[in-house]
Design a protein around this nucleic acid. Structure first.
Length: 876
RNA sequence: GGGAGCUUAGCUCAGUUGGUUCAGAGCAUCUGCCUUACAAGCAGAGGGUCGUGGGUUCGAAUCCCUCAGCUCCCACCA
């Protein structure tokens, strides 16, 4: 017995234990899953960018997933958490370009192959760092299943899907106005454009009117440099100011081109002068006007944002330099009426931050409307549940107004579009060059392999990640393999609301399209991790703690607890390092509790009655709490579950239960109580395990010798047993008595050590079975009496009257005051109850249960008032 | 401009279909304690007109309307 006391360290050292246990779990293959006869529980990780570094958002997101997965595993499911990374085409390509630039290499000087070689090198070097970091967090991913969105089978899936959709007529190629990033030299999806407020100017330009040398038509614009692309001027037919322009032509300043004046109600009469310059190539709305009136479209920009030859003397200059220059030149020629400060919203690239340029270009699109239908239905009908459900509306709104998806990107890093152009025009779409050649020869039998030129563009990253829940199980290439059949549909998806449309909605679309079923049953949307000032954590602000440093300092368990205590679905979490202290303190509490248990000597002897009662009580309470935790999880109220457990462990188990059963100093504990206690403790550890995997495992093995395969993480939860509400209720009365006595001690400055006498006038609410417990915890000698003693401090619990005998220490005045206050309160309470009960409409219309409760309240209150009045009388 | 949501203790948030005087939790604060598991602790305590004003109801933090403040999403009038 003595040796086991010495082998337990006084302090728990997370850094040692965490690495050791993680290695052990890996070695034993506990994270690995294979299809078997059990029910699967599947989660696919939202794949982080392959070159990404762990930040607080990942910590939150992945802790939630790990909690769900570990819990499912312990509930007996075959849990499988598939990890992986995303190639993040534009973000990664941008990083590689940057790196090359720092080495003096320009992307434009490299061939596609050379560039990709660099990119893969970069990926090998930096890729997957984030996955290693997740291991520090304790993530129980099945690492043997790790996938990368550009792994061969996954890329193949993407190509296969593209070809299928093309053959079905859902993918088309077309000239459209796209968001052009002049820095990254690629088109962006609408979702990748962020609108920012910009302080600019509104320029009033003079357009000469043909056949009217004395007047000008004045146009207000924020972008004078685009005049070279003007192909019309537009006025509102109802605008009285501009009737003189009807049917006229005007001359574009500097450029000298004559353009027609057209009329359309799109033009806002109130804005500027009511004249709008129409530049179909460089403005979305103008583009639509151009389509409507069949206007020519003049592109004036190069891909990098400089002006092309249509920009005349400004050719080769950057668009913003031109804007400044043109202002001067217009001024000189008297063609600038005025400028005024103007604030507008301009679109910027999410990746590079530069102002996007609306640009006409040839792109590939996926028709969305039809595909979106089953995906919309699934969420509306709760086949897929969103947590919190408020996102349902947002989702519906988006899906009902879904627009075609521009899937091509002018990048190299990603899956190259499998379209092959024929030398004499036209193209074929095929899964590979050989297939393409076959198809091409159907059109032109003379074609040779080298004549075909593959489209240089790659597919949008999301065009690969929308297949993620399917492609990680190779369900596109091998639609009937045992993994996809077993693991799909997956269960829960945990992700951030900002990618609800980017990713979640598209996965649902892909799920129905390619598997005929929903990809997951529940979507838990996390919030954003913010700092104390509610600012989003970001590198540039430097307000984000380094997760790995936190883990090193406090241990992964502490961070996990901190995050889980404050995460509710859809709500941002306001991070403060003090949260982590709470997590650490809790771990410390668990550790010390364990040390206490291990300190006791166990003997086969009679179980004290108080311990018997305590065991019965805690057993019921534990069962009830476990049931409650189950309910929390079924509604994804993860922080509630954590808090429930936290309070059960700290308040009920440590502060109450252990204090009750604790043997007097120097004495041993009876075996019966001890065994029950260890049983409780193990159950508590099991339920804490998903949140705090490391410390629970560490203690699990200290408690008693375990076999090789008996890790807590693969242990199974017991079904909760009987719950006796009466026992729980009585114990709460007893603990309230204890608390009242302690309160009296605190008020009078009487030390806990000093034994006091407690008189009780026992009634049906007196917890008589718990009297030894009261006696022990409050250090009182209890005597049942029939009338109240004189020199005493009195209190009432439920309806039972207790008196702490305090010879010579009673302050009658203050006691009287207290009773009077209590009496007044109770009388008011009774009054309100009576008001209800005497209200016929209440008695008739309220449910019987509610009325019964009111009657019980009335009885209790009446009794209490009687007691208080007697007490008051006895003071005089 | 369109849509969604939020406003409860100093802070972060619970409050399920209206029904105990329902106003809660954790943290923080205050008081007293180094009591032989734990001062990263123990035992106590204080603290809120549930944003404003109205309405429905026997009964409203909860349902409806007004106003105020805040957040997010979508659109992008040059």
């Amino acid at each position: 017995m003595t040796d086991k006391k010495t082998e337990i360290p006084a302090k728990y050292d997370p850094s040692m234990a965490e690495d050791r246990w993680y290695a052990d779990w890996l070695a034993k293959g506990y994270f690995h899953s294979e299809p078997d006869t059990r029910i699967p529980y599947t989660v696919v990780i939202p794949p982080p960018n392959v070159t990404g570094v762990l930040h607080m958002g990942h910590m939150l997101n992945n802790t939630i997933q790990d909690v769900l997965v570990r819990r499912a595993r312990m509930k007996g499911y075959n849990a499988c958490w598939v990890p992986g990374t995303d190639h993040a085409s534009i973000a990664t390509e941008a990083k590689v370009v940057q790196l090359l630039a720092s080495q003096g290499i320009k992307k434009t000087d490299l061939s596609r192959e050379e560039f990709l070689r660099h990119a893969w090198q970069w990926k090998e070097k930096h890729g997957g760092i984030i996955l290693e970091q997740l291991k520090k967090l304790g993530a129980s991913c099945d690492w043997s299943r790790t996938k990368f969105t550009m792994d061969e089978p996954l890329s193949q899936s993407v190509i296969k899907v593209f070809v299928q959709l093309y053959n079905e007529g859902k993918i088309y190629r077309g000239v459209r106005m796209v968001n052009w990033d002049p820095k990254a030299l690629t088109a962006l999806s609408d979702e990748e454009v962020i609108y920012k407020e910009h302080n600019g100017k509104l320029y009033y330009l003079r357009y000469r009117i043909e056949g009217d040398e004395d007047n000008y038509a004045v146009v207000a614009t924020t972008r004078p440099e685009t005049i070279f692309g003007d192909t019309a001027m537009c006025i509102n037919p109802k605008d009285p100011k501009n009737t003189h322009l009807k049917g006229k032509r005007v001359i574009v300043p500097l450029c000298g081109r004559s353009i027609p004046v057209i009329e359309d109600e799109y033009v806002d009469i109130e804005f500027g002068t009511g004249c709008l310059k129409v530049t179909p190539a460089h403005d979305v709305n103008d583009y639509m006007l151009g389509e409507k009136y069949n206007l020519p479209s003049i592109d004036i920009f190069n891909d990098n944002g400089t002006l092309n030859e249509n920009g005349m003397q400004y050719a080769g200059m950057d668009r913003f330099d031109v804007r400044e220059q043109i202002e001067k030149d217009l001024q000189e020629q008297g063609l600038l009426e005025k400028t005024e400060p103007y604030v507008n919203q301009i679109g910027t690239s999410e990746r590079t931050g530069v102002a996007i340029e609306p640009k006409l270009s040839m792109q590939w699109f996926l028709k969305m409307e039809e595909l979106a239908q089953p995906a919309l239905k699934a969420v509306i009908e709760d086949v897929i549940k969103l947590y919190p459900s408020k996102f349902k509306n947002t989702y519906r709104h988006w899906m009902e107004n879904v627009r075609d998806w521009c899937v091509s990107r002018q990048l190299w890093w990603g899956q190259q579009i499998p379209a092959y152009y024929l030398p004499k025009g036209g193209f074929v779409v095929a899964e590979n060059a050989e297939e393409a050649l076959k198809l091409a020869r159907e059109k032109d039998p003379e074609i040779k392999a080298e004549d075909l030129k593959q489209d240089p563009d790659v597919l949008d990253t999301w065009f690969s990640s929308w297949l993620w829940p399917i492609s990680v199980f190779d369900g596109i290439n091998n639609p009937d393999n045992k993994d996809i059949n077993y693991y799909y549909p997956t269960n829960d998806l945990v992700t951030a609301p900002e990618i609800l449309f980017f990713w979640v909605a598209r996965m649902i679309i892909a799920g129905y399209k390619f598997k005929g079923a929903h990809p997951f049953g529940n979507v838990y949307l996390t919030g954003i991790v913010r700092d104390k000032l509610r600012r989003k954590m970001s590198k540039s602000l430097g307000n984000s703690p380094d997760p790995l440093e936190l883990i090193e300092k406090y241990g992964a368990d502490s961070i996990r607890v901190a995050m889980m205590l404050c995460t509710t679905a859809g709500n941002d979490i306001i991070w403060d390092d003090s949260l982590i202290e709470q997590g650490r303190n809790f771990g410390n509490k668990i550790w010390n509790t364990f040390r206490l248990l291990k300190m006791w000597n166990v003997e086969d002897k009679e179980q004290p009655f108080s311990s018997k009662v305590a065991v019965e009580w805690f057993d019921s309470l534990l069962n009830r709490t476990v049931t409650e935790i189950d309910r929390c999880f079924s509604e994804f109220r993860i922080s509630d579950a954590m808090m429930t457990l936290y309070k059960l462990f700290w308040d009920d188990f440590s502060s109450s239960y252990l204090e009750i059963i604790k043997p007097p100093f120097g004495e041993s504990i009876d075996k019966k109580t001890y065994d029950s206690t260890i049983g409780f403790y193990e159950t508590l550890l099991q339920h804490l395990h998903p949140y705090m995997p490391f410390i629970t495992e560490e203690i699990w093995h200290y408690i008693k010798p375990r076999g090789e395969k008996e890790s807590i993480m693969v242990s199974l939860y017991k079904e909760p047993g009987r719950i006796d509400e009466k026992i729980i209720e009585h114990m709460s009365y007893a603990l309230e008595v204890v608390s009242s006595i302690r309160n009296i001690r605190a008020g009078k400055g009487i030390a806990q050590k000093e034994v006091l006498k407690l008189n009780v006038i026992a009634d049906e609410n007196y917890p008589v079975r718990e009297k030894d417990i009261i006696s022990k915890l409050a250090n009182v000698e209890i005597e049942e009496v029939t009338s109240k003693p004189a020199q005493a401090e009195n209190f009432i619990v439920k309806t039972t009257e207790y008196s702490v005998i305090l010879e010579g220490k009673v302050d009658l005045a203050s006691q009287k005051e207290k009773i009077e206050k209590d009496l007044q309160y109770t009388e008011q309470f009774l009054e309100s109850v009576m008001k209800k009960l005497s209200n016929e409409r209440f008695v008739n219309s309220a449910p019987a249960q509610v009325v019964e409760k009111e009657k019980a309240k009335k009885a209790d209150a009446e009794k209490k008032i009687k007691i208080l009045r007697e007490q008051l009388a006895s003071i005089h």
